[in-house]
Amino acid sequence: MGTLLQQIINGLSLGSVYALIAVGYSLVYSILLFSNFAHGGFLVIGGYICYGILKTFGTNIWLAGGLSLAGAGIAAVLTERLAYRPIRERTNVTLYLLIASMGMSIVIENIFVIVAGGRFRALPPVIPTAPINFFGFATTSAFDLLSLVSAVVFLGALQLFLLKTRWGLAIRAAAYDLRTAGLMGVNVNRLISIVFFVAGALAAVGGIFLSVRYTLYPQLGAITIKAFVAAVIGGLGSLPGAVVGSLILGLAEMLTAGFISSQMRDLVVFSMLVITLLVKPTGLFGKSVSEKV
């Protein structure tokens, strides 16, 4: 009973980190209708900025975290400006954007391989990881609770931004139809920059928590595969879907690790992808994409 509760908390915690990544990815997908494979790069950029600042300027996690979010956000905006916008403005072939995003993903990863080296780095111990006892039922770590709470705060903030602000409204309109939003007088390029900034910053939050969980290395971005799978399970392009899919995936992984075997985790993830694609390929909340004729 205790182990079960513990694994559920761990699973929700891991799932909530996936959710931070998957939501940003889905947000971009809902606007531009392509999978931004460079999304994992933003997470790595966030992780390394946080690491660098903690190492260089002491250990204020609030400053390091804030700069890391801003830095990853700006990197995402720059990626869009340099690599995607020129393609977007010339053609509507999303294949070109996919290929460019894969290229950017490789570029970002290998810049860190060359500059920072392939070593695994541990973030200085700024995030508490002490065990916490739950009224004698279960033990979990402060870190798991903290990452769960942070994810809830950031996702809540995103929700408020989308529902309560003018740009939030514009983004929701653009997710329905980008061209119409443009016709309604929304500055589409600025809107896309904002979306990328938000996606990059959320990925950085995920990146910081993942580097505490697994250590930091240039290929850490590959973990976004899990977020992609979560987004498919929830329904490509759907934000609630991304959150629900991520929590399901996190729970499935941790329960497998806790009760079957740690090695089976990834196999479970990919089986869930396969089952989703076979049974309900549009995911839990997805609707099939249709085109205007």
Binding site: S35, T94, I225, L267, L273, L277, S288, V289
Partner: peptide, 24 residues
């Protein structure tokens, strides 16, 4: 069969999954 009848990047994501699954 399941991924290519849909519009969207389903095959692209499934193909990453395939690569990882085969490696595992």
């Amino acid at each position: 069969v399941p991924t290519l009848r849909l519009l969207g990047d389903y095959y692209a994501i499934a193909s990453i999954g395939l690569g990882e699954a085969i490696r595992l």
